[in-house]
């Protein structure tokens, strides 16, 4: 197992190295320098040491880019987390049901929903959702991260937490307002996530149901619920999580698109505005933050998978 972790960390280092090279190239390009300078290795080393010390430069209006980037990305993460929780709550039971009763009428219904969810383009769905108050009279907010009435000081970057911390200012009104602002965007993102998770769950569960130990469990006379909860889920989960991990970058990029449509103050809007204002220093910062996050998160997922799935513990090589 230690072998596995060390191999994994090796991969992380190599990936991180490549990332820093890409970020360095972007930074050079945004400063207008070309690579033909012979001391690019020295420049690279200087750049890396600056990065590691936390000096990522400042944007045009003199705010630290590291600060901006982290706050913006935290908002994107908030959206992803909320959407993920909503999607998982809905999709996993549906997927289990579809996996348990394959070729049942409801199974076909669920899979059709999943297919629709995968086929619909996210930005179109986001734009349609912004028109929801107009079309249906639902009074849910469609713009902005939080109502301008509430001026919540940024502590962690996760606005939900910040609004809870600012409880003395606004009681819980700011928190509810933030949730309401996140509601419609997270529904849009959940659409895609639900479709993904249903498919993954169903496939995983059908595979597990065909396996021998489930037959043995049946033969031992276990009831179906006990079966699901104790045997099927635990064995189906690793492959679902593994697949979702591969989708992480897609999810983040969808979240960024949704943010742009709903004007949430996240990484998508930050990058777009930086490029519009021709402040290209944000690009390497974004590469480092977002890709770095995905790398680190992948490692955590791998470690998590190792904990919950004993089968993975004996694997030597990272896949």
């Amino acid at each position: 197992m230690l072998n596995y972790i060390s191999r994994r960390l090796n991969l992380l280092l190599i990936n991180a190295f490549i990332l820093t090279i890409i970020a360095f190239l972007l930074a050079q390009w945004s400063n207008g320098q070309s690579l033909t300078d012979t001391n690019y290795i020295i420049d690279y080393v200087k750049y890396i040491s600056a990065i590691l010390q936390g000096d990522w430069g400042s944007s045009i209006d003199n705010r630290l880019i590291l600060q901006q980037g982290l706050t913006a990305f935290a908002s994107t993460l908030e959206l992803c987390i909320i959407s993920f929780i909503t999607a998982a709550l809905i999709a996993i039971p549906l997927g289990i049901f579809a996996g348990f009763y394959p070729n049942h009428f409801l199974d076909y219904c669920i899979m059709t929903i999943a297919l629709i969810g995968l086929a619909i383009p996210i930005f179109w769905l986001a734009v349609i959702t912004t028109m929801l108050p107009r079309l249906t009279g639902i009074t849910l907010p469609i713009d902005g991260g939080i109502s301008p009435i509430f001026e919540v000081p940024v502590v962690s970057g996760f606005m939900l937490i910040d609004t809870l911390l600012a409880e003395d200012l606004y009681q819980l009104n700011a928190f509810y307002d933030r949730l309401a602002h996140l509601f419609l965007p997270s529904i849009v993102l959940s659409f895609f996530l639900i479709a993904e998770i249903i498919r993954l769950t169903r496939r995983s569960i059908t595979t597990v149901m065909k396996s021998n130990y489930i037959k043995a469990a049946y033969a031992n006379g276990l009831s179906k619920t006990r079966l699901v909860l104790h045997h099927v889920l635990k064995n189906a989960l690793p492959s679902i999580i593994h697949q979702l991990r591969l989708q992480l970058s897609t999810i983040i990029s969808f979240a960024m698109v949704i943010e742009i449509v709903f004007s949430l103050p996240g990484a998508g809007v930050w990058l777009l505005n930086s490029i519009k204002e021709e402040d290209y220093l944000a690009l390497p910062a974004a590469v480092l933050i977002i890709s770095g996050f995905i790398l680190l998160f992948s490692i955590f997922i791998d470690i998590f998978l190792m904990i919950i799935s004993p089968l993975k513990r004996k694997s030597l090589y990272v896949d």
């Binding site: 396996s211 021998n212 130990y213 037959k215 043995a216 469990a217 049946y218 033969a219 031992n220 006379g221 276990l222 009831s223 045997h231 635990k234 064995n235 919950i308 799935s309 004993p310 089968l311």
Partner: peptide
């Protein structure tokens, strides 16, 4: 049927390792 299966009849299989839950 399930009750019967547990109390009266038991079954053991070929390749027993695959018939045990690998995650437990």
């Amino acid at each position: 049927r399930r009750r019967i299966m547990r109390k009266e009849i038991a079954m053991i299989f070929q390749h027993p390792r695959s018939y045990l839950d690998p995650s437990k």
